[in-house]
Design a protein around this nucleic acid. Structure first.
Lengths: 224, 224
DNA sequence: GCAAAAGTGTTGTGTATACACCCATGT
DNA sequence: ACATGGGTGTATACACAACACTTTTGC
């Protein structure tokens, strides 16, 4: 038994900065699609699992290892790659704002963040892949607290709300948002305030992962 | 570039009979796991898409071609197959009750339906795959009207409710269930009644696919 | 007429939404 | 003192959950 095909892993990497949801794209330096922007990917190695491959690719572009990572979908259209048959297992990842800033610093000509609302044309079928990732992200945001993976460890409620508004693409009521988030009790007050702002200093919160796990076990549901 | 691996497609095939959710399993006639029960699968052919492969496998075991089919997950653990590296793209499928009966008729020693609550040990990592499929099915049932894919074209509200109770694994209130289903208006009365029962004859309904599509476009949400 | 399942509304309870003003800080 | 965003409570509408009796049919 032999198959004349290859298995690749592609990563949709999301960041959040300037109240915009950002996507990491790289410029291909070889054919096919030389010079086109694409999402980072690579071929699966013999001794690695799919998720390991995704983390390897993620790390190679961002130097981030422990980001949120989730399998999205597997694409296998016969003609999706002009070189031949390539099956692509797509993963999507959420990068913390602190890490985002480091990556932004090493920006070169062939790697950059783009606002997902202004995504350029992408090589292969990567536009389709990204669109699916966006739908999934939006869907998951409504019933799972993923937002914390895109912010810094400590954040204000307003920052969190702005993130949700960006991803869900609608405005949320400030008081209702705060009430719901605080009622679920998955946030912990740090007692600190963000200083150096030109108005009242907002309280800083962290995501209480243990509390969240505990609640999840009890069949708790988060919805927004 | 060369990879020493194979891509397989495996199908979790669900049916519904006797108020039980059923899973189609086959007995392997070759090593590895010879004599074990497994879910149907096969290797991806060069000229077929992933979903086409899933349909081919589905058809080869059930003679059903147009069942509900959805990609579930891709499994790629390094040692999941003793023969070597095999990536498996899993699909799950829902078989109408009418088709179920045909398949049940051709039951042989090496293919059978089993109640998912009494699934035997399965070869490879298929138990894990089936469990994931069950979770996904349960999840989707709550917010997408998939039930109709497991019943006959015409069904009674009680039958529909029993199906939901089986899949969701909890009891539902009859009046509330009927109210909600009928309020969404995705059902059409046929005007017919099911005769030959030893009590009052229940009305028969069909799923109104067009209405459902229309409502979905308007951002309607189904929840149970 | 009896057994068995079909069919049918109302009421309370909790949840989601809409909404406006005062507070702290920097300039 | 003024501009900027932070922080807070209530009233209303809506959705969900609980609940029991009458009707039809076959035997």
């Amino acid at each position: 038994m032999k198959q004349d095909l290859l298995v690749a892993v592609d990563c949709i990497i999301f960041g959040y900065e300037g109240e915009k949801l950002q996507l990491l794209v790289i410029k291909r330096d070889i054919e096919p699609f030389q010079g086109s922007w694409v999402i980072p990917g690579g071929f699966l190695q013999e001794n690695e699992n799919l998720e390991e491959a995704a983390r390897r690719i993620l790390y190679s572009k961002t130097s981030v290892y422990n980001a949120y990572l989730e399998q999205l979908f597997t694409f296998g259209e016969v003609n999706r790659d002009p070189r031949g048959r390539v099956i692509s297992v797509a993963y999507f990842s959420l990068i913390k704002s602190t890490d985002y800033k480091l990556i932004a610093g090493i920006t070169s000509n062939d790697i950059k963040w783009v606002d997902v609302k202004e995504t350029p044309e992408l090589g292969f079928d990567h536009k389709i892949i990204v669109n699916l990732a966006l739908e999934r992200l939006k869907g998951k945001f409504s019933y799972q607290p993923l937002g914390f993976n895109l912010l810094e460890d400590e954040f204000t409620l307003t920052e969190l709300q702005q993130l949700y508004e960006t991803v869900l693409n609608r405005n949320l009521d400030k008081r209702n948002f705060r009430k719901r988030i605080l009622d679920t009790a998955i946030l912990k007050e740090t007692g600190k305030k963000r200083a150096g702002v030109k108005n009242r200093q907002p309280l800083l919160y962290t995501f209480d992962l243990n509390k969240y796990k505990e609640l999840t076990k009890q069949g708790f549901e988060f919805k927004l």
